[in-house]
């Protein structure tokens, strides 16, 4: 989940709301394809078969999946307007992208202090104990035209809202 390096220090405008992914739990069917496509999108080859079966390292998804009986849903970073994680980050590895308003993460800057994990009220950041750094956090697929989980949810349980809270469809950009 690499962000653009030089952007991290610039103050972002307060009233710029980022796009936001929203999950409607009443339509989640528990297939977990959101995770599959998140992993694929963030892999080197962007190809699902290569990402899962090839030799390249398989990334973690930026999604926490919860399931209890017939209720399930996927949770990812909400790119909050006023993110508690930004306040807690000791190194500035978590930063807000000036253009999109999204909360991004520079893996090389992270020292694994776990302050973000302590602060995120959604528990959306995954610790990567092996590499002593925050492991995975949704970046709204900045490098793709549309977030992979939204584009591939078979039941449209995951949708994308634009800056004004209106639903965006794949060909809207």
């Amino acid at each position: 989940m690499q962000g653009k390096h030089g952007e991290m220090n610039k103050t972002s405008k307060k009233n710029m709301k980022p796009r936001r992914i929203v999950l409607r739990e009443e339509y989640c069917i528990g297939c977990r394809l959101c995770e599959v496509h998140c992993i694929t999108q963030h892999s080197m080859s962007r190809n699902i078969i290569k990402a899962y079966r090839g030799t390249e390292p398989r990334p973690e998804s930026g999604i926490y999946f919860e399931e209890s009986g017939p209720v399930s849903f996927a949770l990812q970073c909400r790119h909050c307007d006023d993110p508690p994680c930004l306040y807690s980050c000791l190194t500035g590895a978590l930063y807000r992208d000036r253009k999109s308003g999204q909360v991004l993460y520079n893996k090389d800057k992270c020292v694994g202090c776990w302050m973000c994990i302590m602060s995120c009220p959604l528990g959306a950041i995954k610790p990567d104990f092996k590499n002593q750094r925050a492991g995975s956090k949704c970046d709204l697929c900045l490098e793709a035209e549309f977030p992979a989980c939204v584009a591939n949810c078979p039941n449209e349980a995951i949708i994308l809202l634009d800056e004004n809270g209106q639903r965006m469809l794949k060909n809207d950009d």
């Binding site: 399931e67 006023d82 528990g123």
Partner: peptide
């Protein structure tokens, strides 16, 4: 171990999912 949002009331969950997060 499985404590998560599914065990919380769905109004709180929906607030977090569509809301703007919580102040530190």
């Amino acid at each position: 171990d499985s404590f998560g949002f599914l065990l919380l009331p769905s109004e709180y969950r929906k607030h977090l999912v569509t809301g703007n997060g919580i102040e530190v």
